[in-house]
Design a protein around this nucleic acid. Structure first.
Lengths: 342, 342
DNA sequence: TTGAAAGCGCTAACAC
DNA sequence: GTGTTAGCGCTTTCAA
């Protein structure tokens, strides 16, 4: 296998020094038009590719951006990755990803691995890392953006929504829609801290209105349509008089809807179903369910842009986006997503 | 900000040479127990992290593995990424991802960017790259695994299923289930070559049985539940006598089912719906639809393992996995996924 | 078992 | 505008 051509070979062929070749290929500094042309022609004929590793060592920075998410079995984080991919378009950055499986030791190990590449930045899911991990991030010396959540204390930058407020808003919307006997079905709350925050906000808003959850069913497993369906069946068998169920997310809620369809229940007349995320799927369901539409793609895109734009050692903004509640029968308002910066 | 400690500092603190420190930290070569302990203690006190960029430049290889997929709006490729993440566990590899948006120029540019990092390997979706891209991959000098598809000529390694056979098998299964007036609803066939291969196989098997598609509806947009729903509505309004519709994938099929539920059609009695992929969601639907269960996670996992195990300059195997057809009302057989190697 | 020397391929910094 | 010098932090190679 022929060795890959190096900058030195390009320079030799073009009859200039390595530095001139380097500058010509990077559009850096002043290079005469003739030198530039010769270098580019030489690079072309040799099929020169450039070596990012050497560049990184010399320039002490890479174009890699580390992305850590808890899971990819759920479409939500895949859409965040798609948003990140969009956000770094034209910036030359390349995303490296890791999946924690909602395990904080795995998360810390992944972050350490990523930091050994001296990435241009790090995007991490959530605000609730253990102290040791927070310290790691703080000392990393690279821009860090925590995503999805803003209820807490970010290490540096942060883009997300308030899950506490989202839960409370949904509770108020369901009460306003006349629902009174409300149950809850959730998954993975011990690990999914954002779902737990939504439930806490939901409960608090019910309490403010002088009421409370009638009953709930939880699973320790990750959320899925199947477990939403099963838990709904058991919840309704014990509490057939519920007129509303709030779910930890849309996957669970869709499972609940499927149970109701099989059982011949009238949704939303008899029972209103409320999820979270606003998956595309929800819009096409044959019967309406309530949900909170979250800007997943936008969160990823903004986080990536913050890192792309971050001057080294500048602290980053906290961006709070606003989700949108949709109730059954309600035509989705195509209001653009709001955003505030602090 | 204190500069990050280097190997030289660790070595100095341990009272050994850089080389001994390097060997001790990597478990490479023979190092005395006492030297090893001193080095590890020194690394610990300094909080030494190591610099993969320098390692890569010196050792001429990285632990990065490039992954190129067409989209992440569809859960299928997210599950492939999750499989890759599983497959490289404990191998020390880190995945860099890129999204092509089904555009071959974007794909070529992404691959070029990735190759400039001298990755340990490349995982690329599909077998139908343009010649220039194939040449790029062939000359890359790194292990390449093409995934999802095996109907074609791989550049190097390959893990996937035969989409042509999957389409043909579904046609035969639907005919065997007594369906005769069959329609087709598809999306994005110009870009999604695998969906096009399934349709070709489906048509060929119908022709073998002396029949043909009654009608079809196509969209140039990517697949979605919403477009499956819309196209099904128009197809059935022109051809209300269809007894079966084959869809380009489960998302489209689920949209079709939702239309039928809204329209009060009996599924599968009056109309059988057949998708592709076997999304988890399908198992929980209130009415049965047919699908082909594909081993997405397994494809990702195997591809990653092939690269992790690849000695440089060894050619890789072609792994053909077998999908499984499920018809409505049929209890899914939990037969383990087969696999053959050639 | 250990160490010294010599780079890996590139760019920052400074001269010319 | 262009070239020279000196590394970036590590590992390979070879000698001790």
């Amino acid at each position: 296998m022929p060795r890959k051509p190096t900058l030195a070979q390009v320079a030799a062929l073009a009859g200039v020094s390595k530095m001139t070749a380097s500058r010509a290929l990077r559009d850096a500094g002043d290079v005469s038009a003739s030198a530039r042309d010769k270098v580019q022609a030489a690079a072309q004929t040799l099929g020169y590719v450039g070596d990012r590793v050497a560049t990184a060592l010399s320039a002490k920075t890479t174009n890699l951006i580390g992305v850590v998410v808890p899971s990819l079995s759920n479409i939500v984080f895949a859409q965040v990755l798609a948003g990140i991919s969009d956000g770094i378009a034209d910036s030359g950055l390349q995303p490296v990803f890791g999946i924690t499986g909602y395990d904080s030791d795995t998360e810390a190990a992944l972050l350490r691995d990523m930091l050994s590449w001296r990435p241009a930045g790090l995007i991490v899911t959530g605000l609730d890392q253990p102290d040791a991990t927070r310290a790691l991030l703080r000392q990393a010396g690279v821009p860090v953006v925590q995503i999805m959540d803003i209820d807490g204390d970010p290490v540096d930058g942060c883009v997300g929504i308030s899950h506490d407020a989202a839960g409370a808003d949904m509770a108020r919307a369901l009460l306003a829609a006349g629902r009174r006997r409300i149950g809850y079905v959730g998954a993975h709350l011990a690990h999914d801290t954002r779902a737990a925050k939504r439930l806490a906000g939901f409960r608090a808003a019910l309490a403010d209105a002088g009421t409370a959850l009638v009953a709930s069913r939880l699973t320790g497993a990750p959320s899925s349509v199947a477990s939403g369906r099963d838990l709904t069946a058991t919840l309704l068998s014990h509490h057939p008089d519920l007129d509303c169920i709030y779910y930890s997310n849309d996957d669970m809620a869709i499972g609940g809807l499927f149970h109701c369809q099989s059982a011949g229940l009238d949704v939303p007349g008899q029972l209103m179903i409320a999820g979270f995320n606003g998956l595309d799927l929800v819009e096409s369901l044959p019967v309406g369910i309530a949900t909170t539409v979250t800007p997943r793609h936008e969160i990823g895109r903004r986080a990536a842009q913050m890192i792309a734009a971050a001057a080294p050692a500048v602290s980053l903004a906290r961006v709070s986006l606003t989700p949108r509640i949709v109730l059954p029968g309600q035509t989705p308002r195509n209001r653009p997503l709001g955003g505030t910066r602090s």
